[in-house]
């Protein structure tokens, strides 16, 4: 049995060391590679803990998908243009490590002084073998007791996909075409927009000429027309 512990310790050691390396690395690409090592080791730990299916999922989703995605993003961000920085401000570093140490101490005390008591379930090694293995067991439990949550998760994933499409859509054209704009003001003096043709200062033909193809319903004064699409654009960027 000692071999099992030895293997576990080895895997955990590599995982922890590479995790520490991940946050220490100066280059984000190196960090990502260190994270891959951690994840692979964690997947191995999962196998030791009778979670073969999750180990595979871990490799496929995390190392296969998410980290590749991260690396893609890293490539897209031009490293030369990144500001030269490594860590945060010194105070932030001190507080960060301090908090980490305190929390580690607390959790260590918790792990060593307390025991978790629970009723053992039916899914021992033999129990899983009886239904055909870990994947079958998970399938059985998942699709009998967690149908609604899994559908909700599917919805979340769908929403995330749409959100990603939205976030990643290409920028608008460099020179936006002036959008058709409707100027509607509430007139105090007339009811229900009846003063459409009661703009004494500017004749309607005049307005049409000045404002291009914009729709003009009514306005109280000429200032209403002085803002152009360019102005609006500037206002949005500020």
């Amino acid at each position: 049995m000692a071999a099992e512990v030895l293997v576990f310790n080895l895997l955990s050691g590599i995982a922890i060391v590479s995790a520490a390396a991940m946050i220490m690395m100066r280059n984000p690409v190196h960090s990502a590679i260190a994270l891959v090592i951690t994840f692979v080791n964690v997947a191995a730990v999962f196998i030791m803990l009778r979670a073969e299916f999750l180990a595979v999922v871990q490799i496929i989703v995390y190392t296969g998908a998410i980290l590749v995605l991260i690396l893609f993003v890293l490539m897209l961000v031009n490293p030369d243009e990144l500001p030269d920085f490594h860590g945060a401000r010194p105070m932030q570093q001190i507080f960060g490590f301090g908090l980490g140490i305190i929390l580690l101490a607390e959790i260590a005390v918790a792990i060593l002084t307390r025991t978790v008591v629970a009723e053992p379930g039916p899914w021992t090694e033999d129990g899983m073998a009886a239904v055909g293995g870990n994947v079958q067991a998970i399938g059985q439990v998942l699709y009998s007791g967690y149908v609604l949550p899994i559908q909700a998760t599917a919805l979340v994933l769908l929403a995330a996909t749409i959100g990603a499409l939205f976030l990643g859509r290409p920028d608008e054209d460099e020179e936006p075409t002036p959008s058709r704009r409707t100027v509607a003001t509430i007139s105090l003096a007339h009811t229900r927009g009846s003063d459409q043709d009661e703009i004494p200062a500017l004749s309607s033909a005049n307005i049409k000429h000045e404002a291009g193809d914009r729709d003009l319903i009514m306005a109280r004064d000429a200032d209403e027309f002085t803002s152009t699409p360019e102005d609006d654009q500037k206002g949005q960027q500020e």
């Binding site: 945060a88 932030q92 960060g96 908090l99 305190i102 929390l103 607390e106 959790i107 005390v109």
Partner: peptide, 20 residues
Amino acid sequence: IANYVFAIALGAVIIIGAFM
């Protein structure tokens, strides 16, 4: 954001500490 995260972590430390 670092400050907010710091506050969260501090909260976790305090709660777990009190629990211990």
